[in-house]
Structure formats: structure tokens, C-alpha cells
């Protein structure tokens, strides 16, 4: 649904987005990760046609965003970063405006408003002015606007920003649910959201894609991935040493495999060793790797320099 080829955006001499290419198909939820200022919002603004790209091509549903912007924009629902909404309108008035702009009329318009009000839990504030809403409600009002025409492509810039933990949970579930039938791109810097909602994630840093894969693949890039952590009475580092490099952490021993591909074997070998040596094990597990470690390792040099 979304095809991006070699996208570049320059602001003066600075290349905010520098040669980004990726595709998002229907049924995919793509998480867009990166430190602040990495180019996430700029990329999303180009996908939604708000700012023109300096170079490169973006097609949404087969329509080139620069050549046929109206057709492309019709397919997209967009939640901008700060979740802007007209403060002088009521929630209902605002959603009715969004429905009108999307060409919905009569019964379809009423149905669409009812649907998004329910999806985004806006019932209690429906006739309240947007300027009187709390941040969470304002955010969900803008999200409702993005969903009103049941778009095939959703672009959400930090959809869970400013929400409380319960609301975050609801919105993540909603994104995952919507992702079954739509192409969804959302940006975040909360790494647990990648696990909670994404089918695929891209890490972007200084305008370039530095990692692209499923959450499991990204975790696999962690130095920790594939290591086996073992703890219990009698466990000794000397005995584990032949299996790989051993580290001691928090009273547990962590064995790193010499060959990552054979990581599955390692747990079995440790278990066999434990039986032979009659260790009384309390825990034995294969580490999946941690996203935040991968994220820091890939993007840290940049953040430190600033």
C-alpha cells in the first residue's frame, strides 16, 4: 500500500531524511523507531503529502503523492505529532467537519461518527469544547478524526504520546486490530510498543534506516540474544566455560554461544551438563535479546554527540 523509494528531504544543508526506502503492505503494522530528530515525523509528513520530498518517490495505494495528492490523501488517515484539533469546536463538531471533508454525508456520516466515538472512547466528552479537554481526550479526538473514513492506510505520529497506561494499552490494541485489514505506520519511542503492536519495525537514525525487521529479528541483533542464563546451587563458571564465554550477573551465570546460529543447542547442552553435575537449578532460560539494548547500540553514538 505504501511504497517509498530513496526518499530525501533537505532543510538547507541538513538532510533530515537521507535515502529512506521501505514498503508497507495491507495487514502490516510498521513501527517507526528512532531518537528525537531522527527524521520520523518528517518522513510521515511526506507520506501524507504535507511537505514535498526533495528527492525520491512515495506511492500510496498506487497513487504518487506528489502527482496525484488528492487520490493519495483520500486513502490516508493521519494523526499528526501534536494531535492538533480546532480548539473552538466541540468534539462532535470537529468529527462532523472531518466527515464532511472526507465526503461522508447523511446516514454514512452519522454511522462513521458513532463508530469512531466508540473506538476512541469519546462518548463522555462528545459535546464538550476541544479547548476544555485533557491531553488524553484531545489526542483521542484527533485519532478519531484519522479513523473517520475507515482509511486503508493509517499514519500515526506517536499515537500513544500523552496517554495514561490504560489508554496506551487500549490504543495499542486498537492499532493491532486495525493492522489486520489496513497498512499502518506508527512512530514511537516506547520500545515495548513495538512488541505490543508491530509486525515489523524500522529503526531510523540521522535520516537513514539502520535496522529493518520483525521485532524478533531486531531483538536477535542484541548481543544478549541466544545467551543462556542459568542459576542454582552448585553451578560453576569453570564447568560452563567449555560451552562458551561466561559472565556472572546478579548471582546467575550467563553463557554466550560461540556461534549464534546454534543458540538453541546451547540450552540443551547446559541442561545436560546440569544433570551430569547434579546442579540444583533454579532457572534456565535462553535470552531473546532486548530491544532497548539494540536501539541504544545502534543509535547511541548520535545521541551522545548531541
Amino acid at each position: 500500500m505504501i511504497r517509498i523509494e530513496n526518499l530525501v528531504k533537505s532543510f538547507g544543508p541538513k538532510r533530515a531524511v537521507d535515502g529512506v526506502s521501505f514498503n508497507v503492505e495491507r495487514g502490516e503494522v510498521l513501527g517507526f523507531l528512532g531518537p528525537n530528530g531522527a527524521g520520523k515525523s518528517t518522513t510521515m509528513r511526506m507520506i501524507t503529502g504535507f511537505i514535498p520530498p526533495t528527492e525520491g518517490k512515495i506511492a500510496v495505494g498506487g497513487y504518487d503523492v506528489t502527482e496525484s495528492p488528492l487520490e493519495a490523501k483520500r486513502l490516508i488517515g493521519y494523526l499528526p505529532e501534536a494531535a492538533p484539533a480546532y480548539p473552538d469546536m466541540t468534539v462532535h463538531g470537529f468529527l462532523a467537519f472531518a466527515a464532511d471533508m472526507r465526503g461522508l454525508t447523511g446516514g454514512a456520516k452519522h454511522k462513521a461518527i458513532d463508530r469512531v466515538v466508540e473506538l476512541c472512547f469519546l462518548d463522555s466528552v462528545l459535546h464538550q469544547g476541544i479547548d476544555t479537554l485533557s491531553k488524553g481526550y484531545k489526542h483521542r479526538t484527533c485519532l478519531a478524526q484519522a479513523l473517520i473514513h475507515d482509511p486503508e492506510v493509517l499514519v500515526l505520529d506517536e499515537p500513544t504520546d500523552g496517554l495514561d497506561p490504560n489508554q496506551k494499552h487500549e490504543v495499542r490494541n486498537l492499532i493491532r486490530e486495525l493492522g489486520r485489514t489496513k497498512a499502518v505506520v506508527f512512530s514511537t519511542h516506547i520500545l515495548e510498543e513495538v512488541d505490543a503492536a508491530c509486525t515489523r519495525a524500522i529503526i531510523i537514525d540521522r535520516g537513514r534506516i539502520v535496522a529493518n525487521g520483525t521485532p524478533a529479528e531486531l531483538r536477535g541483533m542484541s548481543g544478549l540474544a541466544g545467551a543462556v542464563t542459568v542459576s542454582g546451587q552448585g553451578v560453576s563458571a569453570d564447568k560452563l566455560a567449555p560451552l562458551g564465554r561466561v559472565e556472572v550477573a546478579d548471582g546467575a551465570y550467563r553463557v554466550f554461544p560461540a556461534d549464534k546460529a546454534a543458540a538453541g543447542e546451547l540450552a540443551r547442552e547446559v541442561a545436560a551438563l546440569a544433570t551430569r553435575e547434579s546442579w540444583r537449578l533454579e532457572a534456565l532460560r535462553t535470552e531473546e535479546g532486548q530491544l532497548d539494548e539494540v536501539f541504544r547500540r545502534i543509535t547511541l553514538p548520535d545521541t551522545v554527540k548531541k
Binding site: G49, L70, K73, I76, P84, Y86, M101, G103, Q145
Partner: peptide, 14 residues
Amino acid sequence: RSGTLELLLTMPVT
């Protein structure tokens, strides 16, 4: 100032 420009111009309007 309020950012609604982004909202308005990403709707299907010229």
C-alpha cells in the same frame, strides 16, 4: 501556531 494547518492540508483538499 496550533498545528491544525497540517491536519487541514493532509485532508483531501488542494
